[in-house]
Write a protein that binds this DNA or RNA. Structure first.
Lengths: 138, 138
DNA sequence: GTACGTGCAAAGGTTTTGCATTACA
DNA sequence: TGTAATGCAAAACCTTTGCACGTAC
């Protein structure tokens, strides 16, 4: 089991590195499944039977505030977490319901009158359609 | 109180027009506030004291399936409903938390290799920033 | 040592479900 | 009249909170 994330960096940010948080970070590192808090809890508590929901939620909130995970609002019923903090977009496959990364930078050109009215800092595109796997088998 | 939506159309679609549904449709018609099920319940039950949550939820699910309202997944804690079914985007104001329509058609140009991999049918852009009102007072 | 994280249980908020009753078409 | 919607209550989910205890720094 390799610690793939920069532990030193978390200390610098001021985040206390507890075994539970290390386990969560290890689980999330490179994870492309956009897991929910419950899925993270289930996975991590396999190796950490005493871990509680409250700890997962509080750890995720801390990591979110520190900018180390992104909270996704794609699923209507629960939050999902993405360790990839670089700007990217998501496709929800209407067939298998999976959430797939779309790592393309689109040129969202705002009309001048809109620029004058709104002060837009970020944007996130939610695509719906078929993922490559489902497209092949349909 | 005018019935502003095409009642005949709902009959044609096969949706039964109950007084409760008419009240919900009247409340939603032209509504730009993207209300939650709870807000819809509160507003409609003022005129309809016997109305229950279950009725609101089931009516909204029916209207969503019939394509008459859009279920928005912008708010992490609850679904919001939009009677505007034409394609448009949304800005969540980081200051007042309001959800504002962005009625601009952006040219989301998909790269060729992406087009070959994915079969994308729709997209929805979530903007974050300041709405015109909050921008003025900040 | 101290501030902060953890674990447990309980509560809060949103949505769904089961079932008897009511009413649209 | 028959099928579908309503109303009520309870349950199912997801998330948050309070508090005593434990631990990273």
């Amino acid at each position: 089991m390799t610690v793939l994330f920069p532990m030193k960096r978390y200390r610098e940010i001021g985040i206390r590195l507890t075994p539970q948080r290390i386990a969560i970070l290890n689980y999330l590192d490179g994870n492309k499944n956009h897991p929910s808090a419950d899925e993270i809890y289930k996975a991590v508590s396999r190796k950490f039977p005493t871990m509680s929901f409250a700890t997962v939620y509080s750890a995720l909130a801390t990591l979110r505030d520190a900018g180390n995970v992104v909270e996704l609002t794609i699923d209507p019923m629960k939050k999902r977490y993405d360790p990839n903090t670089e700007r990217h977009h998501h496709l929800t496959c209407v067939s298998c319901k999976r959430v797939v990364d779309i790592g393309i930078e689109f040129n969202i050109e705002l009309p001048e009158n809109l620029k004058q009215d709104f002060d837009i800092t970020t944007h996130h595109i939610e695509f719906n359609g078929l993922c490559p796997e489902c497209r092949r088998t349909t």
